[in-house]
Computed example of a mutant assay.
Amino acid sequence: MHDLTQPIETGMQTYPGDPAVNIESVAEHDSVGYRESRLTCGTHTGTHVDAPAHTEPDGKTLEEFDVAAFERTCRRVDCQDLDAREPIPAGRIPTVDSDVDCLVFWTGWDEHWNTDRYLDHPYLSPAAAERCAEQGLAVGVDTLNPDPTPSERSRADEPDGFPAHHVLLGSELLLFENLTNLGAVSDRFELRASPIRIDGDGAPVRAIGVDRS
């Protein structure tokens, strides 16, 4: 079993404009005999899952998915050769066996976590997202976003808005973002990424990768 989760910490990186993350002590052993903290964060903090309600006005919330939806049989797609802000083309999308229900894109961009360069990750082209949706595949990424994330280095030829989100979430396919440590798993693995029970648009997960023989 491999931990594929970014740690939640005060001041950690978030999508531009999302709520800042803060962990504050509210009780200590010396004063009250136990320890407790207050966590303030957005629903799309760190390694998390997007529900369709994130971008689709009539989309399902997390509560509308069976718990089994957060355990996925994955195929890892190696995209480590792609440069900053380079689209993942449709030709990279494999045709998968019937038991695979999630593609996880391994860009290696998690090595830039908590830096400005993390904003400039490769992203799914709209055509690549369409090919995932055609096969009914959920998607996981080791980046901040399957779409281009705004930064000072955004390019004029990049798609506007959130086309990959709309294609995938509009097809009621879950998105797992900010995965890490994808080099530890094999090309076929099981992803276990259950969110806290919240009837919302997304939530942090503890993502675990389990190699499949």
Rank of each mutant, 00 (worst) to 15 (best):
D3S: 11
L4C: 06
T10C: 04
G11R: 02
G11D: 04
T14V: 07
T14P: 02
Y15N: 00
P16S: 03
P19R: 01
A20G: 05
N22P: 02
N22A: 11
S25D: 09
E28K: 14
D30S: 13
S37W: 09
C41Y: 03
G42Q: 07
T43H: 10
V49A: 00
V49C: 02
A53H: 03
A53F: 01
G59M: 03
T61R: 07
E63T: 07
E64I: 01
E64V: 02
T73P: 00
C74K: 05
R75W: 10
R76W: 00
D78R: 13
D83H: 14
I88E: 04
I88N: 12
I88G: 13
R92P: 14
I93A: 12
I93L: 14
D99P: 14
C102G: 07
L103G: 04
F105N: 04
T107W: 12
E111F: 02
Y118P: 07
H121M: 05
L124F: 11
P126D: 00
A129P: 11
R131G: 07
Q135P: 09
A138F: 04
G140D: 06
V141W: 03
P146R: 06
P148D: 05
S154W: 15
R155T: 15
G161L: 08
F162M: 11
P163F: 12
A164R: 11
S171K: 11
E172T: 05
L175T: 00
F176C: 10
L179S: 07
L179Q: 07
N181A: 14
A184T: 13
V185K: 11
R188Q: 12
P195Y: 10
R197G: 14
D199R: 06
D201E: 03
D201N: 13
D201L: 10
A203M: 04
V205T: 08
R206D: 15
R206M: 10
V210N: 12
S213P: 15
